[in-house]
Design a protein around this nucleic acid. Structure first.
Lengths: 175, 175
DNA sequence: TTGCTTTTGTTATATCGTTGCATCTATAAC
DNA sequence: GTTATAGATGCAACGATATAACAAAAGCAA
């Protein structure tokens, strides 16, 4: 878990730490979600939990229709797009998942409950993502915008590039 | 024009400066585009120039289908989506327009030719946008990502909130 | 002119997201 | 327990965004 961790640098089980036990990773995410929803008096229904688990099945952002496909595969019923989008909306409102604007996709948030604007690292090679917290950058952005008279409400930062693994693979291949 | 201007703070005819002569603004943008394309030996065809002018008809990001609608309205012919997307792709490659990821829309770049990652200010009330340059923030982001072993190739920053005009309108309304 | 490359036209289709309304389910008041 | 209510889900249709594949045309150079 990340509770009590200083909010600077990469957070969550990002590719920065290499391999990890994803079963545990997923379990902890669901437990955090349960605790938060309980605490806030909102309902983490089966649909919502299912969608959360699918999003958390990896660290690669998933499209709404990817999620839908998994739901269809896993269950007898045949949910429609609104089902998925509604669940995602709830999860976003609760800060449990982030929307990745540049991919039209969704990814689990390793820091639910903490008020933060997230900075996402997106690997263009393997598709994996990680969340990073850089308060200085965010402060600088807000300051610059403020100088221009702009009142910032939401900060979206997405960095595209190569994750450590893919970068070294590329280097190793002689590129 | 912005040539020679220090690359820090808002750039272009943003809402930071209030009203401006947009006819001149558009003309200069097209002239910059022509000069750049000439210099690079690429072709700013009629289609591409038309799309550029439509994008630059205001400072509000336009969707591809908005642009398409204007093309249909202005011309006898009836272009199809690929026409617009191809023109937009060209203009993006040449750094003449930016894609606004969080809006699935496109907006003219006031700094073509300069190598920069753009930080966009997006007003949620009036829809207008402005471009800002904050090298410190970008450096900080790259540094943070680098610490995690991530090789940054592209930095996307979009700030949503209220532009000066809309912010003061709101305040004036007693809100 | 001829041949080649680049651009545009055209049709169809893929992908992403929402509206509107009916139905069901959990919760609470009685 | 029954019933009223709000919240959640099911469902059908649709709207918005984006691309694939191939044909035709336009620019350019030998």
């Amino acid at each position: 878990m990340n509770r009590g961790k200083a909010l600077h640098g990469t957070v969550g089980p990002s590719f920065a730490r290499g391999a990890h036990d994803h079963t545990v990773c997923l379990e902890e995410a669901v437990q955090r979600a349960e605790a938060l929803c309980e605490q806030r008096g909102v309902r983490l229904t089966k649909q919502r939990r299912d969608v959360l688990e699918i999003v958390w099945s990896g660290h690669r952002p998933l499209g709404a229709y990817d999620i839908l496909a998994v739901l269809v595969q896993e269950q007898g019923r045949k949910p429609q797009p609104p089902t998925v989008y509604r669940a995602l909306e709830f999860l976003q409102d609760q800060g449990l998942v982030h929307r990745v604007e540049s991919l039209n996709a969704f990814v689990g948030c390793p820091l639910p409950g903490e008020r933060h604007s997230c900075q996402l690292l997106l690997c263009r090679a393997c598709g994996d993502s990680a969340e990073m917290v850089d308060p200085e950058a965010v402060e600088s952005l807000k300051r610059s915008a403020g100088t221009a008279g702009f009142e910032v409400e939401k900060v979206t930062v997405e960095l595209k590039g190569l994750c450590p693994r893919c970068a070294s693979d590329r280097a190793g291949a002689g590129a």
